[in-house]
């Protein structure tokens, strides 16, 4: 049972790490500011979700009432991030549109 919990937690944590790495690489490689928001806003959300899920699974080692409360508190962070991350992304996009940044398109590159 212990080894099973450990394997599950490690798998979740590594998935989250890969997703965070994807977000960071996406921020580096994408051509313009609007497409940079795609990896920044969403792969980070998925990364937080999977990593916190892995840590909550690790919590099952010492099962007690305090630990259950702690896990609920951790999922409160995830819930808040799921609400806040689209709002922050939308706010940045809105700022870009109002400031008049032109979106990068493929056709413009060919000309």
């Amino acid at each position: 049972m212990t080894i099973f919990i450990n394997i599950l937690a490690v798998a979740f944590l590594l998935t989250g790490l890969v997703s965070f790495l994807g977000g960071a690489v996406g921020i580096m490689r994408m051509p313009d500011f609007y497409s940079r928001l795609h990896p920044a806003g969403k792969l980070d959300t998925l990364g937080i979700f999977t990593m916190v899920a892995g840590l909550v699974i690790y919590n099952f080692h010492h099962l007690s009432f305090g630990m259950v409360l702690l896990s609920i508190k951790m999922f409160l962070i995830v819930f808040f991030v799921f609400l806040a991350s689209p709002t922050a992304t939308h706010s940045i996009v809105d700022a870009g549109m109002r400031a008049g940044l032109r979106p990068w398109t493929k056709k413009k590159e060919k000309e």
Binding site: F20, I27, F33, R36, V81, A95, L101
Partner: peptide
Amino acid sequence: LPLYRCLMGPTVLDRLVGVNAIGSKTVV
């Protein structure tokens, strides 16, 4: 990697995206 975007970003909003990414990693 986002820190590079923060320092070198062409516009201010690029830097903001980098700061947001660093913050979400800091929570974990």
